[in-house]
Amino acid sequence: MSEQYPPPPGWSPPTRPPATQPYAAAPAAHPQQRPRQQPPAAAHKPGAIPLRPLTLGDMYDAAFKIIRFNPRATVGSAVLVAAIAMAIPVLATAALGAALDLSLATELTSGSGGESVTTSVDGADIAGIVGVFGSLALGSVLQGIGLILVGGMIAHVVAAASIGQKLSLGQAWAATRGKRWRLIGLTFLLGLTTAVLLVLYALSWVVVVMTTSGWQVPVVYGLISVPLFAAFFVWFWVRVYYLPVPALMLEPIGVFGALGRAFHLTRTAFWRTFGIALLTFVVAQIAGSMLSLPISFVSQAVLLGGVPGEAGVFVLVMGQAIASVVTAAFVAPFTTSVATLQYVDLRMRAEAFDVVLMQRAGLTTSGGNPRP
């Protein structure tokens, strides 16, 4: 028989719960003594994202889901815009190549005795080369403008997917009605502001170099100004440049209102926004380079194979156009989707936007209470 220790003074045996219950029921708490913190309920997920503050994994998972389940309104729109824009330099190169000598390879030829013989180059041929590269630049500009509008469409696609709705390509385009010129104006304003900042900093270097003698002052100025300007540029990118597009497209505001909204939402989330945005930019650039690398490799191999001059220029332009379309097909939908999801996440953290999304999804009443 095992030895039993005596109970401590003041000890009384616990009461046994009823035999019908495996555990004793907790006593009912007084209404004024209920615990303030309740176990968190599972987040509603009517669409691509859970309606709660998002993690990095939530954003990337939702971005790929939206692209995979709605490719026409995401990848399809980017490919359509990029293909139409890049068709301009391809057709221009084909037309100019049929009419002119675009190779300019006849400037130096080998004579019968091995000596170099200089031949004349027609000015029309040089104009043809200028026209080819000018058409390529024009196509790039038009592609950039088109992708701006695609970004506005994808913002609506992501907002709809967050509550379980799927927009077609036509519906996404119709959702941008009334905001298209504002979106282009916003992008132009941001680009102009960025250019002005770079020009002002470059002019400051000119002033320092022109007004000082020796190398000490420029070196000291560089050591101080370069880190400060880089830090300011990062701040400008996160607080002003990064998030006004989804704010403009998804809220009833104008260009300057969108800039103010972006500045307000990132006020207490600078480093989080910067980290996710920088990682997304790096991932998109690496993926875009990997997608376009095989096309560039093939075009370079064809050129090294000894194709005629006119055909070589056409192959070069065609390879550039295809690589641009392939890169835009991934980079534009992915980066815009992640930026819009960051905008949604910041609103859920600061403004209880998840309650608004629940109402739009029909999960709660207008007062925020769950539907029966």
Results as ranks from 00 to 15, higher is better:
G134W: 11
G134S: 07
A137V: 09
L138M: 08
A161W: 09
G139Y: 02
V132I: 09
G151D: 07
V141E: 12
I145G: 01
I154Q: 14
V141A: 06
G151E: 11
I145Q: 03
A137C: 06
G151A: 13
G152K: 05
S135K: 03
A160W: 06
L142N: 04
L147C: 03
V158E: 08
I145F: 08
A155I: 15
Q143W: 00
S135D: 02
A161G: 08
G139F: 01
F133Q: 04
A160M: 02
L142Q: 01
L149M: 09
G144D: 00
L142H: 00
V158P: 09
A159F: 15
S140M: 14
G152Y: 11
L147V: 00
G139A: 03
A160G: 00
M153S: 08
V157D: 05
L138V: 14
L142I: 02
A155Y: 02
V158N: 07
A159L: 09
L147W: 07
I145E: 05
A137N: 12
V141I: 12
V157Y: 07
H156T: 14
G146E: 03
H156R: 06
G134Q: 06
G144S: 01
G151K: 15
V157S: 04
G134N: 12
H156Q: 06
A137H: 05
V150W: 12
G146I: 08
V132L: 02
I145T: 03
I148F: 04
M153L: 13
S135V: 02
I145R: 01
G151Q: 15
I148W: 13
F133G: 09
G152R: 07
G134L: 04
A160V: 06
S135N: 03
L149W: 10
L142C: 04
I148A: 12
A161P: 02
F133W: 11
L136H: 07
H156P: 01
S140Q: 11
L147Y: 10
